[in-house]
Lab assay of single mutants.
Amino acid sequence: MISLIAALAVDRVIGMENAMPWNLPADLAWFKRNTLNKPVIMGRHTWESIGRPLPGRKNIILSSQPGTDDRVTWVKSVDEAIAACGDVPEIMVIGGGRVYEQFLPKAQKLYLTHIDAEVEGDTHFPDYEPDDWESVFSEFHDADAQNSHSYCFEILERR
Rank of each mutant, 00 (worst) to 15 (best):
S77M: 14
S135E: 12
V136L: 08
E120P: 02
P105S: 08
P21T: 02
V88P: 13
F137N: 13
G56R: 05
S138W: 06
Y111T: 05
P130C: 15
I91S: 15
Q146V: 07
F31Y: 05
A9K: 00
N59E: 07
L62F: 11
I82S: 13
H45Q: 07
G51L: 04
N18G: 04
D11M: 04
Q102C: 11
E17H: 01
E118I: 12
D144V: 05
H141P: 03
H124E: 04
A19L: 03
M16N: 01
Q108P: 02
L24Y: 02
Q102S: 12
D122H: 00
R12N: 14
Q102R: 11
L156W: 13
K32F: 03
T73Q: 08
V119N: 15
S63K: 03
Y151L: 08
Q108V: 06
W74I: 08
D132N: 12
G86Y: 06
W133T: 00
D131S: 03
V72T: 11
R71G: 11
P55E: 08
I41R: 01
V88N: 05
D132M: 06
R52Q: 08
I91N: 07
S49H: 07
E129H: 14
A84F: 14
R52V: 06
N37I: 04
N23R: 06
D144H: 06
R71A: 07
G95L: 01
Q146L: 08
Y111L: 09
T68H: 13
L110I: 11
I115C: 09
D127S: 13
H45A: 15
D70H: 12
H114M: 15
Y100M: 03
E154W: 15
K32Q: 03
E48W: 15
R158A: 06
V93F: 03
A29F: 03
P89S: 07
Q146P: 04
Q146I: 09
D144G: 11
V13I: 08
S77I: 14
M20Q: 02
I82M: 07
F137G: 07
M42G: 03
K32W: 01
T68N: 07
Y128P: 07
R71P: 07
E80L: 05
V78G: 14
I115T: 11
E17R: 00
G97Y: 01
K109A: 12
A117R: 08
W30I: 05
F137R: 12
N18A: 05
L4Y: 15
A19Y: 14
E90R: 04
P39C: 06
S3D: 02
E118W: 09
G121R: 00
E134C: 08
A26E: 02
A83W: 12
D142P: 12
P130H: 14
W30E: 14
S49V: 03
P21L: 02
A7L: 00
S64D: 05
G56K: 07
S138A: 05
A117V: 09
T73Y: 09
D27E: 05
D87I: 11
F125P: 02
L112M: 09
G96R: 01
A117P: 02
L4H: 13
Y151I: 10
V72Y: 15
Q146K: 06
G97M: 03
K38P: 01
A84I: 08
E129Q: 13
E118N: 14
I5Y: 01
L36E: 05
D11S: 05
E118V: 13
D87F: 12
D116I: 15
A9Q: 02
S64H: 04
V75E: 07
Y151V: 14
Q102L: 15
K76L: 10
G121A: 01
R44A: 11
V88Q: 09
Q65G: 03
S49G: 03
D87W: 09
M20T: 00
N37C: 03
A84N: 10
R159L: 13
N147E: 05
Y100Q: 01
V10T: 02
H114Y: 12
T123M: 02
I61V: 05
Q102W: 15
E118K: 14
H45N: 09
R158S: 09
L28N: 01
A84L: 08
E129A: 10
E120C: 11
K32T: 03
T73D: 03
L156R: 15
D144L: 04
V119L: 08
W133M: 10
C85L: 15
E129G: 13
D132E: 04
R12V: 08
R52I: 11
R12D: 10
A83T: 10
I61A: 03
E80I: 07
D70V: 07
E101K: 09
D70A: 05
P25D: 05
N147M: 03
A6W: 00
I50R: 01
D11C: 03
G56A: 05
K32I: 01
R159C: 13
A81Y: 02
V13M: 05
Q108G: 10
D79P: 07
V93I: 06
L36A: 02
N23F: 03
V40C: 08
I91H: 04
A145W: 08
V75W: 11
K106A: 09
A84S: 09
D127R: 15
A26H: 06
N147L: 02
P126V: 12
E157L: 05
F140S: 14
D11Q: 15
T68E: 11
G56M: 06
K58Y: 05
D122I: 00
R12Y: 10
S49F: 03
S64Y: 06
I60K: 01
E139I: 07
I61C: 11
G86L: 09
E157N: 07
S148D: 02
E48V: 13
E80W: 04
P126T: 14
V93T: 08
P66E: 07
S138V: 09
G51W: 10
M20G: 00
D87S: 10
P130A: 12
Y100A: 04
W133F: 12
R33Y: 12
F31I: 00
S49T: 09
L62Q: 04
M92W: 12
I5V: 00
L4A: 02
M92S: 13
E48T: 07
S148R: 00
A29N: 00
P25M: 09
G97F: 02
V119P: 08
P25C: 05
V13G: 01
E80C: 08
P39D: 03
Y128S: 07
K58M: 06
L54R: 00
I115F: 09
S138L: 12
E134I: 10
C152N: 14
N23L: 05
P55S: 08
R44Y: 04
F140N: 14
T123H: 03
F153P: 01
R98W: 15
I60H: 06
G15W: 00
P130D: 12
A9L: 06
R44D: 02
D116E: 14
A9W: 01
K38R: 12
P39N: 13
I50V: 05
H114S: 15
N34G: 12
M20P: 01
H114A: 15
Y128Q: 03
W133Y: 12
R33T: 14
E154F: 14
M16A: 13
A19K: 04
T46V: 00
H141V: 09
F153K: 05
H149W: 00
T123V: 06
L24N: 10
L28A: 01
R57G: 00
S3E: 03
I82G: 05
Q65R: 10
I41S: 02
S135H: 08
N34R: 09
H149S: 02
